[in-house]
Every structure is written in C-alpha cells, then in structure tokens.
Design a binder for these strands. Sequence first.
RNA 1: GCCCCCAUCGUCUAGCGGUCUAGGACGUCGCCCUCUCACGGCGAAAACAGGGGUUCGAGUCCCCUUGGGGGCGCCA
Length: 445
Amino acid sequence: MTTVVRFAPSPTGKLHVGNIRAALTNYLFARKTGGKFLLRLDDTDIERSTEENAQGIHTDLAWLGLTHDLFAKQSERTAAYEAAADKLRTVGRLYPAYETPDELERRRKRQLAQHKPPVYDRAALSLTPEQRADLEAKGRKPHWRFKLSGKSVEFNDIIRGSVHIETASLSDPVLIREDGRFLYTLPSVVDDIDFAITHIIRGEDHVTNTGVQVEIFEALGAPIPAFAHFSMLVGAGGEALSKRLGSLSIEGLREEGIEPQAINSLLAKLGTSDPVVPRATLDELVADFDLAKFSRAPAHFDPNDLKAINHKLLHAMPYDAVASGLSRLGVGGGAPFWEAVRDNIQLLNEARGWWHVIEGPLEPVIEDASLAESARALLPNGPFTDATWNEWTSAVSAKTGAKGKALFRPLRLALTGQPHGPEMRKLLPLIGPERAAKRLAGQAA
RNA sequence: GCCCCCAUCGUCUAGCGGUCUAGGACGUCGCCCUCUCACGGCGAAAACAGGGGUUCGAGUCCCCUUGGGGGCGCCA
C-alpha cells in the first residue's frame, strides 16, 4: 500500500518553524516510504484566511524544497462535506443546537468557577420537537454538533505509543456553524478519507482532536489512518514557542539570509536521537529519517543553532550552489572569491562585506607607515597569484626585519582595513596590484 | 480549575533491572596547526530534578513533589 501523508496549514498567517517541522516530517516520511505528499490548505475560516498567506505558504515550501505531489483546498470541497454531514445526520450522530456563543461562554466560565471541566452539557439533545420549532420560529438557526460516544478511544500512536482519549470528558464538537459554514473538524476527516491518507503526522497539540476524529472516521464507515504526534517545540529558555513566532517565520529567516537547508537540517533532527548536523540536501535527511527516533519530550529550538548550522553549511558549499545567490547580492569574483571567503561568513549576505573589501573603495588602516611603504615598493609587477603573498611577505620581511604578527597584521590592516578575515594568500590576488599599491600608500581605493 | 504527556551533560539524545566509575553529537574550554579569524587534528570539563518505595541490585519499575509541555472554542 502506498503511503499518503499531508501537511495541512491554514492560510491565516505566515509559516513558522513549528509548521515547517510538521511539513518536513511529512515530506521526509513520504519520500522515505515512496509515498505521496499532499499539501492541503485548511481555509475553512474565511475571515482569517487570505490569498496572500496562501501564496506565502507556496513560496516558503518551494524555497525549502518541500514539493508536494497532491494539492487541495478545503474551500473548494464543500459538496463533499455536505454529503458527509448528511450521512452523520442519517446515523444520528449530528444534532442541532441553539445556544449562542455568549451563552456557551458563560456556561464555560461557570463550570470553570466550580472547578469542573468546561464541557458542553448537551442540553440541545433533550430539546423537544416543540421547543425546536419554537426556537426556529423565533428565527434561531442551529449549529450542528457531532455526538461523541462517551467511550474511550484508543489508538496506537507511532511516536507516543498507546493513547487513550476519554470522549466523555470532551464537548461534542461543533461541525457546522450557525451560518452553514464548516469548521475544520469534519473537512479534515473527509479529506483524509477522500485522499486516502494513511498516516497523520502532526504536533501533539492534536492528540485530543484525534479522539473525536477517530469517532468521525468510524461514524463515516472509513478506515482509521495511523497517527504519529510529535512533541512541540519550545524556545531556548523553555517558553512556549508561540510567544515568539513572529521572529521565527520562514519569510523572516529567509530575509535574514538563512539557507533553506540549514532550516531543514535543524528541524528534521531536533527532538530525535540523530545528531544535528548540516545536510546539504533533503535526500540525505530522507536517508536516516525514522519516526521511531522522535522523542516524546518537548524540544528546545534556539535560533542561534540555526546560525551555527548555516555557517557550517556555507563552509562546505561549492561555488555552483551559491553562484546565483551571490549574483543577487551583487557580488562578483566567481569561485576564487567564494573559496576565499566562505569560511569567514555565517550568512551568505555577509559575502557582500568581503566583496566590498576587494572592490573598494575602502579607507586603509596604516599602523606602520614605513613598513607599508617598504611593502609597497616590493610589490611584484606581474599579475598576482596564489604564491604572491608568500613571496612578497618574505621579501618584505627580509628587507625590514619584521616578522610574525608585526609583519602580517599591519599588512592585513592596510590591505583590508580589518584585523582579521579570510586568508590573505587568497585575498591578495583578488585585490590586485593597483588597489594594493594605493592602499599601502594610505589612499582610499 | 480539570484531564493528558514529559523529565539523563548548556543543547539534542543513547540507556528498555546488573555489562553505567552513564555513551554519542552540537556547543564550551585547552593544546597543536597557523599571519588573524575560521577550518582541521588531539584532549578536557560537563548530566541521571528532589523525596519515598519495590528489589540481592534502579538512570532503568511504582508513588508523591517540583518543573516543563499540551488540551479543555461556532480556531486550526
């Protein structure tokens, strides 16, 4: 049987690292098992869903390389949901209720005050036909609730093991709003059935939902997919991640200059027993993916880890992989430039700074004027090569007697304006004879 | 408030009653390499949350405490 999994974001905001962990896990599972990956937009909440957010989801996933095989939008599938709702009515599992949101809110507060769980009391179930007719006559429109069995739902979670949900302690979920629109619950199950989803892999914030969803699958006569709920991500300080989601949007990280594979590498391994190491491709992550490696405890997500991985990723990256990125930054110099600077940057856009060091104009720092002048005079005439730096500095040393730090530091400062950076052996040929001569003379170049 | 889940180095974790004076990875620190930083090589420091049980024996099983996470919507 081919596996089919899905990532089902709702386009009510930007994708963040938590979302991507879900997307990635599903993507990797699909690739690992030779299955299919469905991207489904859960856009039943039309007030909060926007086309811009939907577009952003596509952009982010494409940027990360998380391509889908199937696509669906819940807003276009209402006919299927209507049919399912009819079926639930037929089997007596969907009943009308007339409380207003305010009323329900008041009841919840009262229950909480009495130290009781805020569960719906099913008052609507005992409405007589006359009472219903009366309410309808007053213009009250019902919303529709799914009648839970009250039994314990058990399922074997691939990550969490045996899970029991007491549906008696849950409110009968509202499936259809007063205005006729569907809430997420029923569409989600209907889509999972229609797209033959075999594995539902998502965050543990959905484990309770699983109880009601399993009952809906059963009421609809559909097979129950396998479930896997991974733990949530918490911030570096242990705080819930949602508090700082704003700065952790994928769009934000992209703008910051983080490489997509840095994000994939971290998120695929965080909370698993595999070491977090930079991986240049998604295929490498697929190779050792296994749901059995996921821990049940919440994992700490530290944005600084992202930078560290990004740095290592960049260091190992061949020029071909960054060529387009560099040209977007307005950086030239080709492979020689990249190979000179890649060890010294954490973010690709920092290459711009080093490109400026080469292209100029920059104000040289002359620490030792006489040394700089001697060095300038000894500059070879021909084009600079890889060997130039060594030959030249040897000559300067022989002439002036300076060596070690006293020799190299002033030269580096004069040529680059900074006390450290990439190897001068590689930088000098890029700076070239003309700029080198001017900078050693103390002129901006 | 009620229900569920979790708890090993700073971080991610291995560990499924004796082989644990607790292993690995990342990070940190030191040394080496070296013109600087980085890379690389070698090495070091670093953890079983606390308290009770069970057992000949507990990181491993049970209970409590503490801490963290999740849930309790006409959100998803």
